[in-house]
Computed example of a mutant assay.
Amino acid sequence: MGALFAQTDSLGIERQGDKVFVIHKVQAQQTLYSLSRRYKTTVSEINKANPVLANGLQIGQTLKIPYGGEVISPDAEVTKQTKEVTHTVKAGETLFAIARKYEVQVSDIKNWNKLPSNAIDLGQKLIIKKDVLVPVEKDTPMVETTSQAETKRINTPDSVKTSEVPFNSAASLPTTKVQPKEEQPEEVNYPGTPFQQFQKEGLAEVIDESEPSNKFFALHRTARKGTVIKVKNLMNDLTVYVRVIGTIPETSENEDIIIKLNQRAYDHLKAVDKRFRVQITYVQ
């Protein structure tokens, strides 16, 4: 289980009964989904604790985020360790997206893996390093048991004994009752992969179409073809459902784009600019 420590955008913690909330200041590129993973909670729990999110996530907002991990006291002794993980590049992933996922810099990933450019290949293994704080384990003081104390007194030479105490081993040794183990229910493994909900906020862009379509469709980085995505315009709260028909091209112009919409979907959302902030939600 992960432990909670102070970070630049985590302003502190607040306790309400047996619940712990992180006071968090929203930074650029952060989303409700990334915050839920970081603080081991869910997007719905964050929304429930912060009614202000009904108007969308904004940079600079201060949120109370319910924390689901282990909380370590601020005065506890800690030490810094470097944690290293291996990331396998998935379809549609970019170096920028991977850096944002692990909250590290693109330049650091390139240095760790000796990459000459931002180009990466499907299935490529990348080393990711991150400094984490872990509690220092303190030595537990030795506690002398009754039997050890009695043995020491019996083996002490007569010349240094201060008094004679009769020793009754049968009476001095404590008896321990062995409680029968409760039978654990047998685990049942069900076949199949559970559905997972994804939610993200970022920039959408309209697709330049040669011929207008009467359907609602989009391009996405990782969602499979045929996936239906809910798109919410964060400027006016209008919503449209689009179907993924392809992948966003991997170009520098598209690096900050999370979804591309066709003209009809763009018009339905009454967007003003070619690029605008949206929240997308889908399940797969």
Rank of each mutant, 00 (worst) to 15 (best):
V143T: 14
H87C: 11
Q30Y: 04
A6E: 11
K274M: 10
Q284V: 06
L234S: 07
F216Q: 04
D18N: 13
N55L: 05
I13E: 03
F195M: 11
P74T: 00
V178L: 13
V20P: 00
I59W: 06
M142L: 15
V26A: 08
N233Y: 01
N118M: 03
D158L: 13
V132L: 12
K260V: 07
K110V: 02
V106W: 00
F195S: 12
R275Y: 00
T88I: 15
A265H: 01
K181L: 11
K181Q: 07
M235G: 01
K270A: 09
S34T: 12
I245F: 04
F216V: 03
G60I: 09
E150T: 09
N168Q: 06
Q279G: 07
L122T: 03
T175C: 02
E183R: 08
N47F: 10
V26F: 02
S34P: 06
A271V: 01
A265G: 00
G17R: 07
I207M: 13
M235S: 10
T140H: 05
T88R: 15
A76D: 07
K274L: 10
V272F: 10
K260P: 01
P185W: 01
W112F: 01
I72M: 10
E186Y: 03
S10V: 15
E253C: 06
R264A: 13
Y102A: 08
L126I: 07
S172L: 12
T8E: 15
L53R: 02
K83W: 10
Q7F: 03
A6R: 13
Y282N: 00
K152L: 13
S172F: 14
E255G: 02
D273M: 09
R37C: 08
W112A: 08
V240F: 11
P66C: 03
E45L: 04
S252V: 14
P135Q: 08
Q179D: 04
T151D: 10
D108P: 00
P212Y: 07
V283M: 04
Y282M: 06
A171E: 12
N168H: 10
G2D: 12
L115S: 02
Y33I: 05
V165D: 07
Q196A: 14
S210L: 06
G12T: 11
A97G: 10
I257D: 01
I128W: 00
E250I: 15
G123Q: 08
Q199W: 06
P249N: 14
R277N: 06
E211W: 03
G69C: 06
K200Q: 13
P166A: 15
K48N: 04
A54F: 10
R153K: 12
P249E: 15
V188I: 12
K25T: 12
S147P: 03
F216P: 00
Q124E: 14
L63G: 04
A49W: 06
L32D: 04
V283R: 07
D18I: 09
Y102D: 06
T151A: 14
Y190D: 02
D108R: 08
T145Q: 09
G68W: 11
A99S: 14
Y282H: 04
I229T: 07
T79F: 11
F217K: 00
E77A: 15
G17E: 05
